[in-house]
Design a protein around this nucleic acid. Sequence first.
RNA 1: UGCUCGGUAGCUCAGUGGCAGAGCAGGUGACUGUUAAUCACUUGGUCGGUGGUUCGAAUCCGCCCCGGGGAGCCA
Length: 463
Amino acid sequence: MLKATSVKDALRAAAPAPEILVNGWVRTRRDSKAFSFIELNDGSSLKNLQVIADATLPGYAELMPQITTGAALAVTGELVASKGQGQTWEVKASELTVVGKADATYPLQKKGHSMEFLREIAHLRPRANLFGAVFRVRSRLAYAVHQFYQDRGFVYVHTPLITASDCEGAGELFRVSTLDPLNPPKTEDGAVDYGQDFFARPTYLTVSGQLEAEVFACAMGKVYTFGPTFRAENSNTSRHASEFWMIEPEMAFTDLVGNMDLAEEFVKYLIADVREHCADDLALFGKFVDKGLDERLAFVLERPFQRVSYTEAIAIIEASGKAWEHPVKWGDNLQSEHERYLAEEHCKCPVTVYNYPKEIKPFYMRLNDDQKTVTAMDVLVPGIGEIVGGSQREERLDVLEANMERHGLSKADYGWYLDLRRYGSVPHAGFGLGFERMLMFVTGMANIRDVIPFARTPGNAAF
RNA sequence: UGCUCGGUAGCUCAGUGGCAGAGCAGGUGACUGUUAAUCACUUGGUCGGUGGUUCGAAUCCGCCCCGGGGAGCCA
C-alpha cells in the first residue's frame, strides 16, 4: 500500500509526483459540471490541499453526495501544478474513498463561529483553522521549552502531582482521597480520619513543583519542571484555569538578578522560536485574532525588558496622576489595573517588578537586607499581566524558620525542606512560567480556555 | 464569590407590549478552473427554564440555569 503524504508535505513538494496518497477531512467542496474541487485538511498545516475529482471517476455520482464538510477521505492521485490561482500544487484524484461520512449535522461550517460556540464542541474544534493553528503552536512551544533548558544544561525533573504539602501556603487545593465520601472513617473527636486514607495522611493535587525542584537544584545545579498544576480557586477569568501547565526552572548558586536574566531570556527565546517555526499559524492570528500581534512580538524581541523595583513601581503609579479604582500605597498588592498600566502604558513592553514587601509574599522568598522586602519578581506582559512569578529562595536556616513561624507553618511538616538549609545550603532561585499564558501571548488568543485542548474551569470538566 | 452584559432557526444576529425575521449553513435547480464561488427557489423555531403582570409577553417583573467581560486569588 502507498505510504500517505501529509498535506503539509504535498504543498511544499519540489516536483510533481505521479501517485500520492493523502488522508484528511473535507473542509469544503465546490462543484463544476464536469468535476469537483475538494479542500482537504489533515491538521499538518493551516493550508488545505485542493483535490480535483473529475466526473469520470468511478462511482463519481454516488461518491459526491458523501463528500461533505467534515467527511474523512483517502485520496490517491497525481500531484500536479495547479491550473488555477491560489495554490501551487493540487491532486488530480484517480481514486477517492470516503473513510468516514459526516452528515448535515456536522457543526463546523466554513465561516464565522464564535469562540464560545467552539468551546462547547471542544472535541471538534481542533478541526477548525484557528484551533489547528493554536494547537500546532502549543506543541511547538512545548518543544521549545525543552530545547531552551536542555541546550543550557538544565536537568528535567518530574516532580510529584500528588502532594501532602500546600507548597505556597496559599491557594486552594484539590483533595486526593479514596475514602468513601458518604461514610468516611472518623477519629474519636468526630473529624475525618485521614490516617486511614490511601496515603495515610491528607493529600492533594500539586499547586507547584517548586519545593521539590529546589531539592534537585541543590544536587544537580540547574533543573526545570514542566507539567500540569492544579488550583481549586473559584476563578472565573480569561487567564485562570483549574488545571494548567507550568514550567519551573530552579538554579543553585544563583541570585535574584540571575533569575530575572533567565526569565527574560526564556520569554524571548520562546517568542523567537515560535516566530521562526510557526510563521503560517502566527500570520493567521495576526489576521483574525490580533492585528498588532507580529509588531508586538517583534518589539518585545528587540527591546530589553524594563526592570523596576516594587518601590519604584508604587512611585510610578502614584505619579501617573490616574484615577485608580484601587489607590495603592507602599505595602499593598499591585492590582490588575496597576500591572496593566506599568506594562501597557508606562513601559509599553514586558516589565519585571522585583523586591516586594515581605508581608504580601510567601515564606520561602529570601529576605532582603532592608528587612522589609523579599526577592520576589514578577514578569508582567502587555495584555495578559503576570506571566512569570519567582524569587530567590531563603537559604539561611534561621531566617527561613523565622519566616515560617511568621506565616504560621509547622516546621515539622517541612523537615526535608529545612534540611536543604542544614546541609550545604546555597543561594538559589527559580520561577514559574504559565505555559498557557505564554501561549496566549504569542498567539494573541484572549481566553486561556481557547489555548488548552480541554479546559478545566469551575463548573466545567466536560470531555 | 460579588459586579456587569447576554441567552431568539444548525451558526451569527435583528426584533424591546400586538402575525417569529435576515444572512450563512442544509435541500432543489442553474451556472462556473473554482477557492468564504455565484444566482434562483426552499426546509427549518419549546424565543434558556419557571412563576407572575397584562385582553395580549420573545419583549415588563421575580426566581433559577447557562455563557461572556472585567475584579479578587495567581501562573
